[in-house]
């Protein structure tokens, strides 16, 4: 029984550690499918994290904090969208600038909150499920936001592949000129997609600062935003693969925590690096089918559209 409990705890930790990556990557996936490459995910996550923490610490409401984190992320992406879509600035350069901007802004917003800790609410009580031992322990241990993330994954997948607006979005990312000729608003679709990506990155940041480690630390996303961008590319713009990659990242993160605590004499810096390296390596291998990648790549990714 003890072993089973240990495994369940590991699983909970894995899924929880993977949640911010899932959120940020799914958001970036939608933006990239519409043909916009936003490299500012890291910055948007940081701003989301700091705003969410500040609001949650001031108001006492975690939910309000999370919502504000999402809004902050969306606002950041709106700036990006305006610069790249309306002013046709280079997407790569603008995205990099957005990240640097986000690092600074988040440090400023969070400066008054260093050392503050949040009161964490008790675990979610779901009737019926709580009675089933193992499954119950697993499901109970997850954060509510993780459930939301999993639901969002199915929503995004359904939206992209089954719904008409999703079809439109993919068409816009593929051949914007033809989409324009049919009569779609290319810029409108892209604005919405980029802002969805920003909101998701904001929530991802909020998850880190409000639920995962309920403290604010400068630069606390530690490159997860970059991994989210890489994940989208290496997962060949496929939502299911993104989820797999995020879980892998979460799993290796938890694993290296345990190795660290086991004191095997491996430098901690090396262990901290492991999740990033492992995620990239595995995704590169599973996505080495060139024809498939080409087929999935949004053809107009990072190409400005002039109506």
């Amino acid at each position: 029984m003890a072993e089973i409990n240990f495994i369940v705890i590991l699983l909970i930790a894995t899924v929880t550690a993977a949640t911010p990556l899932m959120l940020a990557s799914l958001g970036e996936l939608v933006a990239e499918r519409s043909g916009v490459l936003n490299l500012g995910v890291e910055g948007m996550m940081l701003v989301g994290a700091s705003v969410a923490f500040a609001v949650a610490a001031s108001s006492g409401s975690l939910l309000l904090g999370t919502v504000c984190g999402a809004l902050a992320g969306a606002l950041m992406s709106l700036v990006f969208a305006f610069l790249t879509l309306s002013c046709m600035a280079n997407q790569v350069a603008t995205g990099l600038a957005l990240t640097i901007f986000g690092i600074g802004v988040s440090a400023y917003i969070g400066s008054g909150f260093t050392g503050v800790s949040l009161e964490v609410s008790g675990p979610l009580v779901v009737p019926f499920i709580s009675d089933v031992t193992i499954l119950g322990t697993f499901l109970l241990g997850l954060e509510p936001l993780t459930y939301v993330t999993i639901v969002l994954f199915f929503c995004v997948r359904w939206f992209l592949y089954k719904s008409r607006p999703g079809l439109m979005l993919r068409a816009v990312g593929d051949v914007p000129d033809a989409a324009h000729a049919i009569g779609f608003s290319v810029l409108g679709v892209r604005y919405l997609a980029v802002m969805f990506g920003g909101a998701m990155a904001g929530v991802a940041g909020a998850f880190l600062s409000v639920y995962y480690t309920p403290v604010w630390v400068e630069n606390m996303t530690a490159g997860r935003g970059w991994i989210a961008v890489a994940l989208v590319v290496f997962a060949a713009w496929n939502p299911t693969r993104i989820m797999f990659g995020a879980l892998l990242f979460g799993g290796v993160t938890i694993l290296q925590f345990h190795i660290q605590s086991a004191n095997l004499g491996i430098p901690t810096q090396f262990l901290t690096m492991l999740p990033y390296a492992a995620t990239i390596a595995v995704l590169v291998i599973i996505s080495s089918d060139r024809a498939r990648i080409l087929l999935n790549t949004p053809a107009s990714l990072a190409v400005p559209f002039r109506p």
Partner: peptide
């Protein structure tokens, strides 16, 4: 000059 979407 076709207005079809290759990825779809």
């Amino acid at each position: 000059h076709f207005s079809v979407f290759p990825a779809l």
